[in-house]
Design a protein around this nucleic acid. Structure first.
Lengths: 251, 251
DNA sequence: TGTCGTGATCTGTGATCACAGTTAGGTTGG
DNA sequence: CCAACCTAACTGTGATCACAGATCACGACA
């Protein structure tokens, strides 16, 4: 999931026999991605943030990031602008852009919002999930168990699998704007949540998370929306409680 | 609420007697705003969007906006970047940035999310509201009634008062991130919601909105969280139903 | 008369430059 | 030995320029 940004411009050729017009072939090719450079940098920074690979308080320099990614300063500016608008980054008035350091109050507010929003998503997912959705969730759950219970635990893989598991669930709700909202919440809470998970991949997390995931999966299979919500809320609450104990939060 | 952008650079002087250090006077002055140009443009576009003064489907040109606001293209780019990240604007792959045209499904999803999130905010506000908060809500409610029931109705004032009323309520919950979430929802739904309200300031809106507001205020005064949520949900649902009837939504 | 090529014009994107303000580190004065 | 100053490097912000791609209107060909 590191997905290094490629400075090389994406190809947009596909000559497709200029003389002929074969309707079936034309319909087959589907709207090539055409992602802008700024969007790619945004995606890169987002994945670093939710994975906890950028620590709270860490300072970023537009020029340094640009150089590291092999692009000009311009796309980085755009990416930082967007992320700052989301509250995922913070531009101090005078100088420097950094990863925000959450206060205890801010973290608790974020947790409450996650309970409300992700709880709703879990309910809806339990009602709408297709068998294919459930299969995907199961696969990520297996990956998470394996990464978390390995010896030594693969913390990076566990973080990734945990994220994939949750979002596979939320995507089953089939509400795009809801997913955007949740992504924004994860973007804000990701740095502390996953930075910690990387350091202590086992502990309480290992046990309670796996148990909550199992209950969650069971509830989704039974289409029991309230039970799915309850399981997910326990998962979130347990992780939050663990973070508060370690206490890396500002006063 | 039109708050035209001033091209003139904000002063940041305040020499303050370079030789002396008067602690009491220094503590009195409080961190002068120092808003960046891009932020000001963002705010201007945001207020235009939530007020419904930019119609869905309307196309914007960075250069035109920049010229109209008397700034360079650069701050406009930043503002559009942020708003596009929020989904409040849409940058088409090839060319042009425009106000998104919601499909019926998208509008319904937005409405469901508003019910969940703003409903929660209303509950929390009913529990936490101080007398000062209630006073502010009452004032905006009075302004809304006056604007809506005037002859002819003052649609612009009604839209502004309605927004102020709702956000005065949400601010009583004292959850900053929650307010950001709601602002984002309003940014997406604002263009259709308020564009319509400007055209038909009376109709069903006039009656049901005033009634819902009255019930809402009564519930908050009694600290009845469920009743506050119910009143707000009725307000949102009635407005949404009205929009769906007029049917300016994409298939 | 309808359709397709074709050019001018305008679009957002990216790069580069200029600048005010801040920070950090070294140096000087006490 | 500590504090204050002062300079040099670096910060984000804004402006300007260059460019590929899209749109639109006009005109030629069928």
């Amino acid at each position: 999931m590191t997905a290094a940004v490629q400075p090389s411009r994406t190809a947009f050729e596909q000559p497709a026999s200029p003389g002929e017009t074969d309707a079936s072939a034309l319909d087959a090719i589907g709207a090539l991605p055409r992602e802008t450079l700024g969007e790619r940098v945004t995606g890169e920074l987002r994945s670093l943030l939710v994975a906890g690979r950028l620590a709270p308080g860490e300072k970023l320099s537009l020029r340094r990031v640009a150089e590291a990614l092999g692009v000009s300063m311009m796309p980085v500016r755009e990416a930082v602008s967007r992320l700052a608008a989301d509250g995922a980054l913070e531009v101090l008035p005078g100088r420097a852009v950094r990863v925000p350091v959450l206060s205890l109050a801010q973290f608790r507010e974020l947790t409450r919002l996650r309970l409300v929003v992700e709880g709703f998503a879990a309910e809806e997912a339990a009602r709408q999930a297709t068998p294919a959705d459930i299969d995907r969730i199961v696969a990520f759950d297996a990956a998470f168990r394996q990464a978390a219970s390995a010896d030594p635990p693969d913390s990076a893989a566990a973080v990734a699998a945990n994220r994939d598991l949750h979002f596979a669930l939320y995507e089953a709700a089939a509400m795009p704007s809801l997913i955007e909202m949740i992504e924004r919440l994860w973007l804000k809470a990701g740095p502390i949540l996953n930075l910690d998970m990387r350091h202590e991949p086992r502990r309480l997390e290992g046990g309670s998370a796996m148990q909550a995931h199992a209950r969650l999966l069971d509830a989704v299979r039974r289409r029991d929306a309230p039970a799915a919500r309850a399981a997910l809320e326990d998962d979130i609450a347990a992780a939050a409680a663990h973070i508060e104990e370690t206490g890396q939060l500002r006063a």
